[in-house]
Simulated assay, not measured.
Amino acid sequence: MKSALKTIALAAAIGLAAISGAAAQQVRVGFAAEPYPPFTSPDASGNWEGWEVDFMKAICAEAKLDCVVTPVAWDGIIPALTTSKIDMIIGSMSITPERQQTIDFSDKYYNSLPGIIGPKDQKFEPTPEGLAGKTLGVQVATIHQVYANKYFAPAGVTVKEYQTQDEANNDLAAGRIDAVQADSVAMLEFLKTEQGSACCDMKGMVKDDPEVLGLGVGVGLRKGETELKDKINAAIKAIRENGKYEEFSKKYFDFDIYGG
Rank of each mutant, 00 (worst) to 15 (best):
P119L: 09
K229I: 00
A148T: 07
E227S: 14
K231H: 07
D54I: 06
F253W: 00
A61S: 15
G21F: 11
A4D: 10
A33R: 05
P79I: 04
K85Y: 07
P119D: 08
E98I: 08
M187E: 14
K6Y: 15
D208L: 12
G214D: 08
A63E: 07
A44D: 13
D209L: 01
I116E: 09
L81E: 00
Q100H: 09
S249M: 02
I19E: 00
I116L: 07
Q163V: 13
T127Q: 04
F55V: 02
A9C: 12
F31I: 15
V140E: 15
D104A: 13
V72R: 07
F253A: 04
K6E: 14
K123S: 15
K64G: 02
F253H: 00
G50F: 13
P119Q: 12
M88W: 10
V53D: 01
Y109S: 09
G50T: 06
V29G: 00
G21V: 11
E98S: 05
K250M: 07
A238M: 10
E62G: 07
M1Q: 14
G218P: 10
G30R: 07
L172W: 03
L172C: 01
P154H: 06
Y162W: 05
G133V: 04
V138Y: 03
Y245A: 01
R240K: 15
I90W: 07
A182P: 04
S184V: 11
L81N: 02
F31C: 03
G218D: 12
D87G: 01
E34C: 12
I257M: 03
A22I: 15
I143V: 15
M205D: 13
Q139K: 11
K251W: 03
D230M: 13
G214K: 09
E241Y: 06
Q145Y: 05
R240F: 11
E161Y: 01
E125V: 14
I78D: 08
V68G: 08
T83R: 11
E125S: 14
G220K: 04
P126M: 03
D43M: 08
F55Q: 03
E211V: 11
I89M: 05
G214C: 13
H144P: 06
V185E: 04
I19C: 05
L215Q: 14
A32C: 04
F124G: 06
L191R: 02
A80Q: 02
Y252F: 12
G216V: 08
I19F: 13
E194T: 11
D107S: 15
A33S: 15
I77E: 05
L16P: 01
V68S: 06
I8A: 15
S92C: 04
M56S: 09
D166K: 14
F39C: 10
G76W: 11
V72L: 07
A33H: 01
A61M: 09
K229G: 00
E246D: 09
K223L: 07
V146N: 11
F55T: 02
Q165H: 12
E129T: 14
G204Y: 00
M93I: 12
L113G: 10
F255H: 12
L113I: 03
D75W: 10
W74M: 09
G15Y: 15
A186Y: 05
N170H: 12
K134Y: 03
I78V: 14
M93Q: 13
F124C: 09
T83M: 08
K231Y: 10
V68R: 15
V159H: 05
A80T: 10
P35Q: 02
E34P: 06
E225C: 07
G130V: 03
G260M: 04
